[in-house]
Design a protein around this nucleic acid. Sequence first.
DNA 1: ACAAAAGTGTTTTTTATACACCCATGC
DNA 2: GCATGGGTGTATAAAAAACACTTTTGT
Lengths: 243, 243
Amino acid sequence: MAGRDDRKSLNNQADFKVGVDNVIFSVDTQQNRLLVLLVMRQKEPYLDYWSLPGTLVRQGESLESAAYRILAEKIRVKNLYLEQLYTFGGPGRDPRESAYSYNCRYLSVSYFALVRFEEAELIADGVTGIAWYPLEQVPKLAFDHQQIVEYGYNRLRNKLEYSPVAFDVLPEEFTLGELYQLYTTILGDNFSDYSNFRARLLKLGFLSDTGLKTSRGAGRPASLYRFDSEAFALVKDKPLIFI
Amino acid sequence: MAGRDDRKSLNNQADFKVGVDNVIFSVDTQQNRLLVLLVMRQKEPYLDYWSLPGTLVRQGESLESAAYRILAEKIRVKNLYLEQLYTFGGPGRDPRESAYSYNCRYLSVSYFALVRFEEAELIADGVTGIAWYPLEQVPKLAFDHQQIVEYGYNRLRNKLEYSPVAFDVLPEEFTLGELYQLYTTILGDNFSDYSNFRARLLKLGFLSDTGLKTSRGAGRPASLYRFDSEAFALVKDKPLIFI
DNA sequence: ACAAAAGTGTTTTTTATACACCCATGC
DNA sequence: GCATGGGTGTATAAAAAACACTTTTGT
């Protein structure tokens, strides 16, 4: 990249501040709700708007480190899945661009993260509002964060179909019923019938039965399973279909 | 994004120059070779190294516009597929970062593009070297461009399986043999048997027979097909499997 | 005639889908 | 006993995979 047409373009390249914004999803297994983490903005622009947790990238810091840093500032987690989502960088996406005389653009590299709801502990610093929002109830967000959330939601739905991200959202031990519920809350409930889903997942061979049972109220107690990452490593190069 | 922890971090955010680098693929249908477009660097750093065509983003210019601009500077094309690939932005990826005293980082937003080889006309400006390189013969590249090419190649292989990108690389009219060849040159030749591939693709319903025949040397003349984008639009929401 | 490439069809195996039904528990 | 959720099996339809065979051209 860079620099090979300085000759022509002289000095009209934009200067950028680069931010990282995280779309952090989780699922409340009890209530079957897909949640996204939002924080309240404490300053202009978009003062008092909800927004995605984000930060400017510091000197010497990689994009991914910045994503981990802001996440660690907002929640304590044991388990975490994180990958880059998309880069939004059109001019005019941040009002501050025009507010100052020197020309500075704001670019956002967004990251997609999944955490376990039960293990995730929100860090309230007494100043910043922070909350899990059910996806359908997300309010008007700051900047273009609405679009970023949409983008993240698409990524989530796609990844559910061919990768084992569900196990980064579920508790370590889960029932097949919970796993199925997770898929239905995210994908809608006409993607597959429970017994077929069950048979397909078990046949993949990386769900190991712990032997433990759990009983939630009425009904037969369910077996608790856990994701066996070693068994998964053996089959992950074959095409996997979870749905 | 941005700005909500200026309080703590004061002024240690990095300043960025943002570049766009294109991984432009094409396929030489005659020789069955997957090609990537490279340009010779004319200045330091990495003087005289081959690199991906790239440019710094200008004031008021979107990332995508920058990607289109640099592409248009290097090749004339009628058809073009382009999408964002990935953003590479670790510190130290560009030697210029340390070369100057003021702290400036170089970040690269990479784009993935497909063009038709026969229609693509390379623009030689008499100064900059420019060439299609067969993927297996790509030399040591400038910056982290090797990695970007790898990333692009993965994207290409994945997209072949579930989206009609092949038709952005093939000529407008093509035989099913050429289509099959394209898949084998990119995916390797054990992905499917020709007659099954053929049956599957025809059943999808968006390849229309032009009625024309073509004969390349010996053997029975083949029918020429074209991609029917209207017919595709009707089925594109269903899961499509090309392989 | 025969090699070469295009194109068709048939058989077998594997998956997907739709259900029907049994099991274990709380109330 | 029966409602509730867990778990198993079976029958049918569809798709994938393997491969045998016919057609049409150039030489």
